[in-house]
Design a binder for these strands. Structure first.
Length: 935
RNA sequence: GGGCGAAUAGCUCAGCGGGAGAGCACCUGCCUUACAAGCAGGGGGUCGGAGGUUCGACACCUCCUUCGCCCACCA
């Protein structure tokens, strides 16, 4: 299967095109990424964070899935039965929005289609477009077990969701009730607390005068950011210990504009005496804190807004008692319009005392960024506290470990203060809640054709879409629709119109993907999974809920380790977003540089606990690394061919110092990379590979062997060199394969190898027998001496090609032995035709000298005048620079020039000045160095 | 208001009790037959500030400064 595809031309180097497609196809056909549940090998499992079906692969996905793939490929090579389950998420709101936008382009709304047709249409869309992200993951090289691909809304997952819902309901952990919830008027659905993003927003603080009902000359002044909600106020609160106001507690004030009478209550929790005036208007229907206070004081909730965030006619008239002229103006108006109208009226009638600038955090929908309204509504909730407690313990006692550990704090903070989870959504796309109502038993509580699902029934102009289920209705919860009402035996049943929060099905993912609620072999074999790889922004949305549900339904935490990776930002540290136009498209990168370069870059940048700044230049740098490796393979292959292909086994060859050094370094590399991966230090593994391959393997060892191959070295010496080169490269390819699967496979296939694919080759193990500390010391010394010799050569401006002579003055017999062993290498690397050494060597009459690890290195010069010549040359240059510098300095100190010359001319002179200073410093340095080396 | 994190070479960042490092950028010299997407060499940092612990601190502790981020119902 290893026929070489295109041999790249010398100038272009490694070209990933064709190679990546080829190996993807080969791997998939061979089924290497398929994990068999009957295999006796130890299990290692990851479930993918399912990307939205609406999604396109962005760098965040690329990072996330590269890291998962590195782990999976590495464990698979280590001999684990490695399972990576892929899948996608139905993404309720996001997907519904996409299809609604499509409809909009056709001039239609989802209401025109009706629920069933609309849902069919979404499924059709999913069939056509929902597979994009999976194809893109394949291009990245993700070695998922593709035949096990799941979807959060496919049939098995629907069963799991219904089962989980029913069991939670049976255990009293799911309930239906009327609560203040977060409502997105644009999506027209309830949201959970964490789906609301708070954003600091500039606004105003309005001071409004509320006259006492029985003493109109006296007023309480309240401060509010939302004057329009005063129409739904049901009290004014003051602090009971506030001497300014506590005498008013128990009396009433008259609401401006409507004249409705509301009580003054004392509340030490709600009221901060320092803020505003110390008197607060209380609007329980539209503010969470006010709602709490309302409960404490038995206040009514007047829900002033309808589902689209407009002033409701019904409420305005009946409940809020708004007078006719204002009524006409504000009914149907959106909040901001209503606010303007109310403020204008208040001002006209003298109730508006003052307005101050004020900024505060405003809640916005995480999907559409609309301002979210707190809103009383009947919804389904998960009672989270009983689920959270064991989930907290699982992390506390280390059954689940977060990496980096500090994310555990974030997790604890949220879990210990967890609120009930609103799981119902007023959408059409999603898992419809498995609850039914009997039209006979519940006929008073179910209103067909009477309004909308949020239970408000107050949008009179909008044709009702769904039955209204009043809070008092008695749901029949079952995993399948009952044939008839179990209570009365005959009533017709209708299903609850709401669907579940997308994250409900995601919470079941680690076991629903393995076939739960069936007791499958997959589950027994692979649950709990090993590692979860994700980013911090979904710790609450997903990680915490999976832990709760896993413990609840499986009795065991769903994973042992949670690796939280960095967020990918652009080169300036900004979050990438389409609107900012700073998005790096991983697919463009793959087209241009190859998936391997992208993957390696992401791994190299994935240091723990920090955001990642990604730029094209960075990726280009690692593309060079691909190329470097590719070329070293070209070199090796050529010489393998010259030697006739089959080499004797390594242990039958006699290896010299450099060979043993390479073997020893290689053992170190194996240890470093393996340890780094164990600790999720991807960047450390990547940079160890980079450093080793580029600088030790290519720059030093390959050059050493090259010298041997072009000289009259013995066949054994040549074979030993090539054999070690081959072994080093082959081993490195294994270590590198999880990072760069495509290129490593391609090279590996072209080299002599055993087995069908690098993807299923064994992970290297360090062999202590190859450790050779003495060889590492010797070659270390060789490197230093070589650098010193090259350095002296360049100081004397001796061209690289011209051979030199060297003498080394040692200081002990031990040094002599060390030096003796490396002389042949030094000669070739430093291009020295003759190297002498010894403890009693005289320093040559004229020489450049350097000191390396106690050894004096002499580069003799035939003609001592070279120093003088060089010195003179440098001095002349220095003189010229000094003159020029003086001229520029003078010019720059001329006030006339500075004030009259054009700005850019002055700037240019300044630049020149800086450059000259720089040049002078360098020349002085050179002269100083010349002083040091000449003798 | 609470919590978390960061400050190291011009830029982006590793390191985290005994050597201040990498990539890119910069300077010098090389088209040396694997690679100019390269090779050889080089310059450049009182590791944010102040104290403390220690034989020894860039690393550990305290405080300060400056930037991020997350959570939170000051109307």
């Amino acid at each position: 299967m290893s026929e070489p595809r295109m041999l790249p031309s010398k100038k272009t180097g490694y070209n990933p095109q064709g190679i990546e497609e080829h190996w993807s196809a080969v791997w998939e056909q061979a089924g290497y990424s398929h994990a068999d549940e009957s295999s006796p090998k130890p299990a290692y499992a990851i479930v993918i964070p399912p990307p939205n079906i609406t999604g396109f692969l962005h760098v965040g996905h690329a990072m996330n899935n590269t890291l998962q793939d590195i782990l999976i490929r590495w464990r698979r090579m280590q001999g684990y039965n490695a399972l990576w389950i892929p899948g996608t998420d139905h993404a309720g709101i996001a997907t519904q929005n996409v299809v609604e936008r499509q409809l909009q382009e056709e001039g239609r709304r989802r209401e025109d289609l009706g629920r069933d047709e609309f849902v069919k249409r979404v499924w059709r869309w999913r069939g056509e477009s929902g597979g994009t992200i999976i194809r893109q993951l394949k291009r990245l090289g993700a070695s998922c077990d593709w035949v096990r691909e799941c979807f959060t809304m496919d049939e098995p997952r629907q069963r799991a969701v219904r089962e989980a819902f029913v069991r939670l309901h049976e255990d009293g952990l799911i309930y239906r009730g009327e609560r203040l919830i977060n409502w997105c008027p644009r999506c027209r659905t309830a949201l959970s607390d964490i789906e609301v993003e708070h954003e600091e927003t500039k606004g105003f603080l309005y001071y409004i005068s509320y006259p006492l009902a029985d003493e109109p000359a006296t007023s309480l002044i309240v401060a509010t950011t939302r004057p329009e909600t005063m129409l739904a106020d049901t009290a004014v609160a003051v602090h009971p210990d506030d001497p300014r106001y506590n005498r008013f507690i128990g009396r009433c004030v008259k609401l401006p504009l409507t004249g409705r009478t509301i009580p003054v209550v004392g509340d030490s929790i709600l009221v901060d005496r320092e803020f505003g005036t110390g008197a607060v208007k209380v609007t329980p229907a539209h503010d969470f804190r006010d709602d709490e206070a309302g409960k404490r004081h038995g206040l009514d909730r007047i829900a002033l807004l309808d589902e689209e965030g407009r002033i409701s006619a019904y409420v305005a008239k009946r409940e809020a008692q708004i007078d006719d002229s204002l009524f006409d103006e504000i009914v149907g108006a959106e909040v901001t319009e209503a606010r303007k109208a109310v403020v204008r009226r208040l001002r006209e009638r003298g109730f508006l005392v003052k307005v101050e600038d004020h900024s505060h955090a405003l809640g916005k929908c995480y999907r559409c960024k609309s301002v979210v309204e707190p809103f009383p509504s009947t919804q389904w909730f998960v009672k989270t506290q009983p689920l959270a407690e064991p989930a907290i313990r699982a992390v506390e006692d280390g059954r689940i470990r977060f990496v980096p550990k500090h994310w555990e704090n974030t997790y604890f903070a949220w879990m210990r203060n967890i609120k009930d989870w609103c799981i119902s959504r007023q959408l059409w796309w999603g898992h419809q809640i498995p609850a039914w109502y009997c039209l006979r038993c519940d006929r008073d509580n179910v209103v067909i054709g009477g309004g909308t699902s949020a239970g408000l029934g107050i949008v009179e102009e909008v044709k009702p879409l769904e039955p209204i289920i009043l809070p008092e209705a008695q749901p029949i919860v079952a995993s399948e629709q009952p044939g008839a009402c179990p209570r009365c035996g005959g009533g017709k049943l209708i299903q609850d119109p709401d669907v579940l929060d997308t994250w409900f099905s995601s919470a079941l993912w680690p076991f629903s993907t393995m076939g739960w609620p069936e007791q499958t072999r997959l589950l027994t074999r692979f649950y709990p999974t090993s590692t979860l790889v994700t980013s911090f922004d979904i710790i609450f949305f997903w990680v915490a809920r999976m832990i709760m549900m896993g413990l609840k339904f499986m009795g065991e935490a769903p994973f042992r380790e949670v690796y939280i990776h960095a967020l990918v930002r652009d080169a300036e540290g900004q979050k990438m977003s389409k609107s900012k136009g700073n998005v790096i498209d991983p697919l463009e990168i793959i087209d241009k540089y190859g998936a391997d370069a992208l993957r390696f870059t992401l791994a190299a940048l994935a240091a723990q606990g920090r955001d990642v700044r990604l730029s094209a230049e960075r990726i280009e740098g690692y593309r060079h690394f691909c190329n470097k490796l590719w070329n070293s393979h070209q070199f090796l292959s050529r010489h393998l061919a010259v030697l006739g292909g089959a080499l004797p086994p390594l242990n039958s060859l006699s290896l010299d110092l450099a060979d043993r050094w390479m073997m020893s370094r290689l053992q170190g590399l194996i240890g470093t990379v393996t340890d780094a991966l164990e600790g999720y230090r991807f960047n450390e593994a990547a940079s160890a590979l980079y450093q080793f391959l580029w600088h030790e393997y290519c720059d030093w060892y390959l050059e050493i062997v090259k010298a041997r191959l072009t000289s009259s070295a013995s066949r054994n010496q040549q074979e030993a060199g090539v054999a070690v080169l081959l072994h080093g490269l082959e081993t490195s390819l294994r270590l590198l394969h999880p990072f760069m699967p495509f290129m490593t496979e391609e090279i590996w296939q072209q080299l002599p190898h055993q087995g069908n694919s690098l993807m299923v080759a064994d992970w290297p193990e360090a062999d202590p027998a190859w450790r050779a500390p003495e060889a590492e010391d010797s070659i270390g010394l060789l490197m230093e001496l070589t650098r010193a010799a090259r350095d002296l050569r360049s100081d004397l401006e001796i061209p690289p090609q011209r051979p030199i002579r060297l003498t080394l003055r040692t200081s002990s017999g031990e040094e002599d032995r060390l030096v003796d062993a490396i002389i042949p290498y030094l000669s070739s690397l430093a291009r020295a035709e003759k190297v002498m050494y010894g403890q009693h060597l005289d320093r040559p009459p004229a020489a450049a000298v350097a000191l390396v690890a106690g050894i004096e290195v002499h580069l003799p010069v035939d003609d001592p005048s070279v120093f003088a010549t060089r010195q003179q040359k440098l001095r002349r240059e220095l003189e010229k620079v000094e003159q020029e510098l003086a001229r520029v300095t003078k010019k720059l100190s001329n006030a006339d020039f500075l004030s009259k010359a054009p700005e850019e001319v002055v700037a240019k002179e300044r630049e020149g000045h800086a450059r000259l200073l720089d040049a002078r410093a360098k020349l002085l340095q050179h002269l100083e160095r010349l002083d040091q080396i000449m003798h």
